[in-house]
Design a protein around this nucleic acid. Structure first.
Length: 224
DNA sequence: CCAGACGTTGTT
DNA sequence: GTCTGG
DNA sequence: CCAGACGTTGTT
DNA sequence: GTCTGG
């Protein structure tokens, strides 16, 4: 593993074991391409982008997602979009649907059970680190319109990239904004499947397999 | 020009 | 740092 | 995003 | 209703 400006023995550890409930501000794994040497690196980053100018960790809580349609021009994301793109491995995500009896969370995961790659941006911030501390690495997840499968639940979804797009997406020296934006499309309709799960997932302290266990919906819980 | 914000989601 | 609003 | 809290006094 | 913490 590698984190910019850190020696190997300074790299923080991810909690051991599988994660079922990763909250904003927590460390998540990202894949970055450090430079033109084309070596991909696994980095740990706080979820919630902290741009280089941020002087308050609270900024990151508002930057957990970036719209792919506008990330190339927003002050908070522009620099990262141009030269600090990443992949965020995920074997699923959660989304809450509104029903006639309240909110119902769904697990949305690759149909084939694989670990997929969400498109993300990352940043390095020195203002939030102590004088002799390493800079703070953070990231955000790009969103796009939902596909047919996920639009039942929510109108937006994370961008998932296919393996033949990884190289270009990760290359810091590739700066053709139009081409990059054209990669940020809804996933194919058959890439993901959806499963209703317990509302336990709404509490970030519930980081256990109960979050992904299927539940049976009552007749009252029809989707809008 | 300077000052102030810098974002997304969903708005049952 | 860079964009928007006034 | 959801869950849970939601304050004041006095402070270089 | 709105903000903060995770």
């Amino acid at each position: 593993m590698f984190l910019p400006h850190l020696s190997p023995d300074e790299i923080p550890e991810l909690p051991s074991g599988p994660r079922y409930n990763i909250a904003p501000t927590q460390l998540i794994a990202t894949v970055v391409q450090k430079d033109a040497a084309r070596d991909r690196q696994l980095a740990l980053a706080r979820w919630g982008l902290l741009p280089s100018w941020a002087e308050d960790f609270a900024i990151g809580a508002r930057m957990i997602n970036a719209r792919s349609e506008t990330a190339d021009s927003k002050p908070s994301f522009k620099n990262s979009f141009l030269s600090r793109r990443c992949l965020i491995p995920a074997d699923g995500y959660y989304e809450w649907a509104k029903t006639n009896v309240g909110k119902q969370p769904y697990l949305i995961e690759p149909s084939d059970g694989s670990v997929a790659a969400m498109a993300g941006l990352w940043s390095v911030n020195k203002k939030l680190a102590g004088a002799d501390e390493p800079p703070i690495v953070s990231c955000t997840i790009l969103t796009t319109l939902s596909n047919q499968t996920t639009s039942e639940i929510h109108d937006r979804m994370p961008v998932f990239l296919d393996s033949d797009q990884y190289e270009r997406w990760l290359s810091p020296e590739f700066r053709d904004v139009d081409v990059l934006k054209s990669m940020l499309r809804p996933a194919a309709d058959d890439k993901l499947k959806t499963t209703p799960v317990s509302a336990r997932v709404g509490n970030v302290w519930n980081d256990d397999s109960g979050c992904v266990a299927p539940v049976t919906l009552t007749n009252q819980q029809s989707l809008f």
